[in-house]
Simulated scan of single mutants.
Amino acid sequence: MNILFDLNHPVDVNFFKNAMLQLQEEGHHIFIIFRGRGKLEKIVRYELAMFPIEKIGEHKKGFTKKVMAQLHRDYAIIPFIKKNKIDLVACFGPTSVFSTRFCGIPYLAFDDDFEYKIPFYHANWFATRHIFPDFIEFSNSKTYKFHGFKELAYLHPNYLQTSKQVLEEHGIQPNKYVFIREIAGVSLNYKDSTSILSKIVEAVKKKGLEVVLSLEDKDVKEKFSDDCIVLEEPVSDIYSLMYHALFAISSGDTVARETSLLGVPTLYTGGREMVVNKALVDLSVLDESTELTFILDWISQQESNKKEKMQREVLHTIENEWDNTTSVILKHINDFT
Rank of each mutant, 00 (worst) to 15 (best):
Y121P: 00
P133Q: 02
T95R: 10
R129F: 06
C91P: 00
G185M: 09
I318N: 01
K207R: 15
D253N: 13
I299A: 01
D192G: 02
V220C: 13
Y239R: 02
V264L: 00
K199R: 14
H59L: 13
L48K: 12
R37C: 09
S139E: 15
K218F: 10
V230N: 04
F247P: 01
V97S: 10
D237E: 09
G27D: 07
M310F: 01
I33H: 07
F110C: 05
K221H: 09
F63P: 15
H332C: 05
H122N: 15
Y121A: 10
I105P: 09
E303L: 10
S327R: 13
E58G: 10
T290A: 05
L21D: 11
F110W: 08
E291I: 11
L155T: 00
K218M: 06
A127D: 07
E291C: 06
D282R: 08
F149K: 08
N277I: 02
W322Y: 12
V166N: 00
F224H: 07
N18W: 07
Y159L: 00
L7E: 01
N175S: 08
A76N: 15
D227W: 12
S251R: 04
H244Q: 07
G38E: 12
I78W: 07
I53A: 12
E258Q: 07
E273C: 09
G185Q: 11
L48H: 02
H28K: 10
K145G: 05
